[in-house]
Structure formats: structure tokens, C-alpha cells
């Protein structure tokens, strides 16, 4: 083609109209915004969770009053300009209680996720590498898994008094078996990878094999599992508080607020409604994040790790 001097178009030549550009060139999605565009569930879940974190951290600044101050004269008010979410049967401001309740839920959710991951990772790695211990550990884990986690947490809470710390410990113990199973399975499959054999042949000691070749490759499934545990722990905490086996009633937690509103739910449904909305949104956010992570960390989809 001669680009410098276009030949003059003959007068009798029909010229086709320019076709619309159907296949517009697309810029590849790169960088942080590109990552969020490609993984909308991570973006939505992360944003929602970020809002919840913001609420929890800056609770005193968000037009709240003391969530524990009671004023019986103003009890069971419906939502109004003064009491955004109404008041409960002791006249406490539900908006303030719900906002402060985010602290408990997020603390429990993330503490359990982290503690259960660390404990499960340790047990799973040990079980996957020490074949002698494997049978014994796995039978104990099987036994623990045969009890529903909520029931196990209730039983553990029955042994002690209610406090945030004890709730975290109880839920962690109930969640450990699932992590340990997952990690053991991943370790058993990674152990058979040729690159592990090659590392053994290259003279790498077993602890280094674990830290260099096994552990980094368990992180993808682990982080996904951790988000599900986080969501599940928040729900279990609410359930424990709801049935009175969890956080002491004075501390505002979403489960506690719902438990106190239970008796009045037919006449004053808003007492249960608002903490339930917050709990649902937080759990949804964590689950969205988990689903997004699972897809993003899948090696078949991810070239950009």
C-alpha cells in the first residue's frame, strides 16, 4: 500500500460508508483498578467489609451515644429523627448499640479466622508429614467433626463464663478440624510433587522443604478457607449470644441485641431488624471476598499472581 500519495478516488466509484468499529480495541485490565474490575466480588466484598471496619473503629465519632446508658422513660421507641434505629426495652439507643456491636463481631470473626488458621495449619502440616501421628490425629479430628460446630461451641461455653475471649476460644476450637483436614489434604498432595522430590535430591532439609515448598503453596486454599471461617464465626458468635451462651448481655453485640429484642419482635420488629441487617451484610461481604479470592487464586485463571 502506498501511504504517502493516496490515489484520487474516481468519481463513478461507489464508496462504502465507514463501518462502525464493532470490535473496539480493549485496553488490558492492569494494576489495582484492573484487578478490581476483573474481580468484582472482591471489590464489592472488600468495600463492604471496609465500611464495617470503619464503623467499628470510629464508632464513638459516628453520632453515637453511650450504648449501655439506660433510660427507662424512653424505652421501645420506634425509629425517629432522634433515635435513628429506635430504642430497646431499657431505653438504650439501638443505633449506638449496633454500631458498637460491629466491634465484637469483627473482632470475633477475624480472631477466630486467624487463630483457627494458625492452629489448623500447624496440625495439618504435622499430620501430613509425620505419618505415625497422622492416624491418631485424624481420628480425633473425625471425632470433633462429628459434633456440629455450634453444638461444640455451646458445650465449650458451658464449661466457662461468657466473655469475648472465651467465645473466641470456643469457636476457634470448633473450627480447627476443618482447617486441619484441608491443610493435611493439600500437604499430602504437595508432598508428591516432583519439585519436592527434586528439592530432597538437592539436599534440602525437611524443615526447609516445609517452609519453602509446602507452606507457600497451601496459602491460596488457606486464605479462602479463612474467609469462610471468619463469616461462620460471626454467625456462631451471634447464635451463642442469642441463646445467652456467649458475650455478657451488657456488651453490645449483634447477637445480644437480637436476643433482647426477641420477646418484642411482634410489636417492635426494628430491634431485631437492624442488627440482623448489619450481620447479614458483614457475612455477605466476607463470603463475597472469599469467593473472589478463590477465583483469583485459582492457578488456571490467574497469571497475575
Amino acid at each position: 500500500m502506498n501511504a504517502q500519495a493516496p490515489a484520487p478516488v474516481p468519481a463513478d466509484l461507489a464508496v462504502a460508508p465507514a463501518l462502525p468499529d464493532v470490535l473496539k480495541p480493549r485496553k488490558p485490565l492492569t494494576g489495582f483498578t484492573g484487578f478490581l474490575r476483573k474481580n468484582p466480588s472482591i471489590a464489592i466484598g472488600g468495600a463492604l467489609l471496609g465500611v464495617m471496619f470503619f464503623i467499628a473503629v470510629f464508632a464513638p465519632l459516628l453520632w453515637t451515644v453511650d450504648p449501655t446508658s439506660i433510660s427507662p422513660a424512653r424505652r421501645t421507641r420506634v425509629p425517629s429523627e432522634l433515635y435513628w434505629f429506635g430504642t430497646d426495652m431499657l431505653g438504650r439507643d439501638i443505633y449506638s448499640r449496633v454500631i458498637y456491636g460491629a466491634r465484637v463481631s469483627l473482632l470475633v470473626g477475624f480472631s477466630v479466622a486467624i487463630l483457627a488458621s494458625i492452629a489448623g495449619l500447624t496440625i495439618g502440616l504435622f499430620s501430613g508429614f509425620v505419618r505415625v501421628a497422622d492416624g491418631i490425629i485424624m481420628r480425633v479430628i473425625d471425632g470433633m467433626m462429628s459434633i456440629p460446630p455450634i453444638l461444640l461451641a455451646i458445650a465449650l461455653m458451658a464449661l466457662t463464663r461468657g466473655s469475648v475471649q472465651n467465645v473466641i476460644i470456643a469457636i476457634t476450637i470448633a473450627e480447627i478440624p476443618r482447617v486441619a483436614r484441608l491443610v493435611r489434604g493439600v500437604v499430602l498432595s504437595l508432598r508428591e510433587q516432583p519439585y519436592v522430590d527434586a528439592a530432597v535430591a538437592a539436599g534440602t532439609r525437611t524443615p526447609m522443604i516445609i517452609f519453602r515448598h509446602i507452606l507457600p503453596n497451601t496459602m491460596a486454599p488457606m486464605s479462602v478457607q479463612a474467609t469462610y471461617i471468619c463469616a461462620s464465626a460471626m454467625i456462631v458468635e451471634a447464635i451463642l449470644s442469642f441463646i445467652g451462651a456467649g458475650i455478657p448481655p451488657a456488651t453490645p453485640s449483634w447477637g445480644n441485641i437480637m436476643a433482647e429484642g426477641r420477646a418484642l419482635w411482634q410489636v417492635r420488629p426494628h430491634i431485631i431488624l437492624f442488627p440482623a441487617i448489619f450481620l447479614s451484610l458483614t457475612v455477605l461481604a466476607v463470603n463475597l471476598l472469599g469467593d473472589g479470592l478463590r477465583d483469583a487464586l485459582d492457578p488456571r485463571m490467574a497469571k497475575n499472581l
Partner: peptide
Amino acid sequence: LRPLRQRVQVVFQDPYSSLNPRM
């Protein structure tokens, strides 16, 4: 055995699983 391992090395069949994807 570890120091003697230097003398024998190995190349595996599957080029995809024989390299640690995170190194």
C-alpha cells in the same frame, strides 16, 4: 547421605510440576 546427594541429581518428566510455582 545429604552431602552425597550432590553427586546424583534428577530431571523429571513433567516440566510443569517439577518447578515450584512460587519460586
